[in-house]
Amino acid sequence: MSEKTILKFSDETAAIATKIVARYPEGRHKSALIPLLHLAQAEFDGWLSVPAMDCVAEFLSIQPIEAYEVASFYSMFNLKPVGKCTLEVCRTSSCWLSGAEDIVRHLEKKLGIKEGQTTADGMFTLKTVECLGSCGTAPMLQCGGDYYENLTLEKTDKLVDSLRAEGKARVYTNDNPVNID
């Protein structure tokens, strides 16, 4: 039997987590669960393994099951490993009216995978998701917390190529907002 893996937040993440916990009244620290699961997902390779969820539960002094049941409810939490970039294409009405299906098919062909799969090199996961509040700039996809809107097949190609060259998803910060177009 292998030993149980134990994960811990880095000092930097732990400091952010402590600040988040302070937002809630005395005894209501469980409110920090969702923000902390996001932190854990970001820190531990983009998905929530059991040890990653245990780390959050331990940090908040709650039962592990409380973390599992929340993680499994929300669609942004990945309970299985994903690629370095998850391309999440919106498939709901307005995007569908504007050609979202063509984008998905094009990506499937370009990446050589089906929706829901990850490329062999671990670079891309392709997903379809429900309305992301970008219906006026449809079709669109989300990757790494950023929105890529008014997509065309050419723009999609360019995006995939540049992400591949960069080797990871871009992260939005206020000092360095990613240019959406």
Binding site: R23, K30, H38, E69, Y74, S75, F77
Partner: peptide
Amino acid sequence: YVQIGAGAYICGEETALLESLEGKRG
């Protein structure tokens, strides 16, 4: 404070939102 959700339309329903804000399923 700003609290972020994690992908669930139902959390727009106000009581589900409050559950979620308390750190539970929506």
